[in-house]
């Protein structure tokens, strides 16, 4: 595993499996009374968030703290970014304080990649524009794996605002690496450009896909948020029409196999892409995704930072 995690495509299948397996151990630690490990003692992790976030930022913060790293949050609001400092200057300034890792979220695709060219520390992409969000894909895979077992040969359907979704891209990459089949479902206006080159099937018909008529029986469905803040209008006529055609309503819930889990990266627009019946039902693993997020991020920080003095021979089996 390299020093940075920028894209879900950076991970080979064995590397992804190792991160997920380690996360399994981290997940078990979450149910202990004392949730603290000494592993990253003396390391400093800075959450550099140029875009609003609650769950990702706090998830990285908790993950770092449970591994005994010192975690500092810097958000664009109230920092020198609002005084007009450039991305490069901000990154260099923070890195110059001797941090071991930057966890970066930025509204522009590729901004995080750019930062790796300027700084020496590890960089983790916590979401860049409409490009990628690799730790979200890892936690989705982890949460799914806990629920339905090995993902190889399983069929995952991702529905919603794919054009603006970094979650969808990272998920397609990682699920493909793990051997799962993915079908993307969205209205034509929300299908990303160039989707034909992705390793997945596509459909405009949610009912047919959920009933297994498009790409076989569905093992899990992931609903994505309609990102109103990124939409400059014109993607669909009305929210009501979107909800009718692409929302996971109680009627569609019946088309889905009884044991197929429902995922949503949050925050949810209830009544738009997902109904409360789906979000709060037995099949929903939305809250487990949040819990898994901490475990997966602990695993990622561990693999990136714990052996920093000597780049990690992650794949080599060394006995304890």
């Amino acid at each position: 595993m390299s020093r940075n995690l920028l894209s879900a495509a950076d991970l080979s299948a064995p590397e992804a499996q190792i991160i997920l397996d380690s996360a399994e151990q981290m997940y078990a630690i979450q149910s202990r009374q004392v949730k603290k490990l000494p592993t990253l003692r003396g390391r400093t992790v800075v959450n550099l968030f140029f875009e609003d976030s609650t769950r990702t930022r706090s998830s990285f913060e908790i993950a770092g703290k449970w591994l005994s790293a010192d975690v500092i949050n810097i958000s664009a609001k109230g920092s020198s970014v609002s005084k007009g400092e450039s991305l490069r200057d901000t990154a260099l300034t923070v890195a110059a304080m001797g941090v071991d890792a930057l966890v970066v979220r930025h509204a522009t695709s590729g901004a995080v990649q750019r930062i790796t060219e300027w700084v020496d520390c590890s960089v983790v992409n916590a979401g860049d524009g409409t490009h990628e969000h690799p730790t979200q894909a890892l936690l989705d895979a982890f949460s799914l794996r806990r629920r339905i077992g090995d993902l190889a040969g399983r069929h995952v359907v991702i529905v919603g605002d794919l054009t603006h979704s970094r979650v969808a891209r990272s998920n397609v990459l990682l699920l493909h690496t793990l051997g799962a089949d993915v079908t993307l479902v969205a209205p034509p206006t929300l299908m990303p450009a160039g989707v034909a080159s992705w390793n997945c099937a596509t459909s405009w018909d949610l009912d047919a896909t959920l009933s297994g008529e498009v790409n076989g029986v569905v093992d899990a469905v992931m609903m994505l948020r309609v990102q109103r803040e990124r939409m400059s209008g014109g993607y669909f006529p009305t929210e009501r029409e979107y909800a009718i055609s692409y929302g996971l309503n109680p009627r569609r819930l019946k088309l889905l196999p009884k044991d197929a889990p429902i995922l949503h990266p949050g925050p949810m627009n209830r009544g738009l892409e997902i109904s409360s019946a789906a979000a709060d039902g037995d099949r929903s693993i939305v809250l487990d995704q949040v819990k898994s997020g901490v475990a997966v991020r602990m695993s990622v920080l561990y693999h990136l930072l714990a052996g920093v003095d000597q780049p990690a021979p992650v794949l080599e089996e060394v006995s304890p």
């Binding site: 151990q25 052996g307 000597q310 992650v314």
Partner: peptide, 21 residues
């Protein structure tokens, strides 16, 4: 009992996969 996360040689000998506890 997996002790990997408590080892003092992770920095010098690198990260390794975790075992089960």
């Amino acid at each position: 009992l997996d002790v990997t996360l408590h080892r003092d040689d992770l920095r010098t000998r690198g990260v390794r996969p975790l075992g089960k506890t």
